[in-house]
Amino acid sequence: MTTNTITTIDTRATIHPRWVRICHWINALAILVMIGSGWQIYNASPLFDFVFPRQIALGNWLAGALLWHFAAMWVFVINGIVYVTLGIVTGRFRRKLYSIRPKDVIADLRAALTFKLSHEDLSHYNAVQKLLYTGVILAGVVIVLSGLSIWKPVQFQELTALFGGYDTARYVHFLAMAAIVGFLVVHVALALVVPKSLRAMITGR
């Protein structure tokens, strides 16, 4: 066996490069803190006819939640910028996510719901995965921008206006959170259904 072959095998075996895994787990941590503290902040002035149970909200009271939220935002945003930049520069987004055809989404969704969707090749994303991963990245962008427009509605008033004003931006921020939480539920459930995908995100293979 030559060194050359070994390299080839290694490259093929790596499903997620190290930067993807590092960004993924930093993001997992940051998003949990952002969501938990965000729920507590929401409770101080609910937009809808419900509040989040205190047991699953972070920070214990409004000031504590705000401290968590505005600390974790740095981790979330900086890590997010690194991830998106590398995703574009390395061509990973183009290779993995580009071109989502509605026909494939419907076919793959049907296959998934009847448990016929193949997970043999983890390095290849099916159309439903592509749609969900692209969607959650976009939700991440929206949540950051709407968050900025709530945080700085005077300094960034043009951005706030883009979201329909301060009060509307709060709803946008909430809906982006709901989308991310919805993704998380599906994402975690499927990772548990296909445990080797979880292993791949930890070890890379």
Partner: peptide, 29 residues
């Protein structure tokens, strides 16, 4: 009522205790 909610009572004073999401954090880290 909203405003009084802002008041930290003894049970609210700690920023860090009593949140299940922290359990997940502890698990992750």
């Amino acid at each position: 009522k909203d405003a009084t909610k802002l008041m930290p009572d003894a049970s609210r004073r700690g920023f860090l205790r009593g949140a299940a999401s922290l359990g997940a954090l502890t698990f992750l880290t």
